Amino acid sequence: MSRMDRLLHLDRTLDQLDPPAWGSPAADATHLVRKVHALRRVPLGQLGPADLRTLVSQQVALPYVLPLAVRLLLEEPLLDAYFYEGDLLLAAVNAPASAWARLPDLGARLCTLVSALPEPAVARLPTGATEELARFVRWADSLPSTR
């Protein structure tokens, strides 16, 4: 295990890192709620792209999940995590500003990545994606510690 992997706590679960543990969902919980509860018990190193997209979209333990998502996005910015090309990226840029404010260096790296995306690739993303990406870049560029 590399030093970076240890820093990302890849051998631990969100229930361990982000107390209190959630326990079991209610008997009548939706599929999504059951899935998120289950994902909190999976070691971070075993979470796949679709799992990360779900957790980021549901704003669960973002200080732990966003670094993992960005790590994947730096390798493949328009990764198709589950629904469509770029779904993980759009989930990440739509994370609350408060989450990114806690991770300014990571936000700056993602901003640089988003700014470098080729326009034809961005044009293939769902309606509204261009505006979401531009909004994230504007916000990240406004931070004193970025770039």
Rank of each mutant, 00 (worst) to 15 (best):
S145D: 06
A26N: 07
S145A: 12
A99K: 01
M4Q: 14
Q58R: 15
L117E: 11
L62Q: 10
S2Q: 08
V42C: 10
T54C: 12
A97K: 12
E119G: 04
D87S: 06
L110P: 12
L8N: 13
R6S: 15
A129I: 02
R147S: 13
G48Y: 03
H9N: 14
S24W: 07
Q46T: 09
L47C: 11
A129M: 02
R40P: 10
E132V: 05
R71E: 03
P144G: 08
A61G: 11
P67S: 05
L113T: 13
D80R: 11
D105F: 05
A81K: 00
S98K: 11
P96V: 10
L143P: 00
V137S: 01
L89T: 04
P120L: 03
V93D: 06
R40D: 13
S145L: 09
V137A: 04
A69Q: 02
D5N: 15
A81V: 03
P104R: 07
T130C: 02
L68T: 09
D18N: 13
P118T: 03
H31T: 15
V70R: 05
L52P: 14
P96G: 14
A29V: 09
L39I: 11
Y64P: 00
L103C: 12
A27V: 09
M1V: 14
A27N: 04
T146V: 11
V56I: 14
G86L: 00
A97G: 07
A91Q: 06
A116H: 09
G86M: 01
P118S: 10
E132C: 06
R34L: 02
R138W: 09
R41D: 08
V70D: 02
N94Y: 01
W100H: 12
A26I: 02
R3S: 14
H31P: 07
P63L: 07
E76L: 05
D87M: 01
E85C: 01
V122W: 01
A140E: 04
F83Q: 09
L78I: 06
T30P: 06
W22R: 15
L133P: 02
M4C: 11
T146S: 13
A21P: 13
A50Y: 05
L110D: 10
V56Y: 04
A92G: 03
L55Y: 02
F136L: 07
R124C: 08
R53S: 12
R53L: 06
C111D: 08
S57N: 09
S57E: 03
R3T: 15
Q58D: 09
P144V: 09
S57T: 14
S142W: 00
D5R: 15
A116E: 12
V122A: 08
L117S: 08
L78R: 01
L47T: 11
R41K: 13
W139F: 05
R34C: 13
V122E: 08
V137P: 06
Y64F: 14
D87R: 04
L73V: 04
D15E: 07
A26D: 12
L117P: 10
D80H: 07
R12A: 15
G45M: 05
A38W: 03
D105R: 15
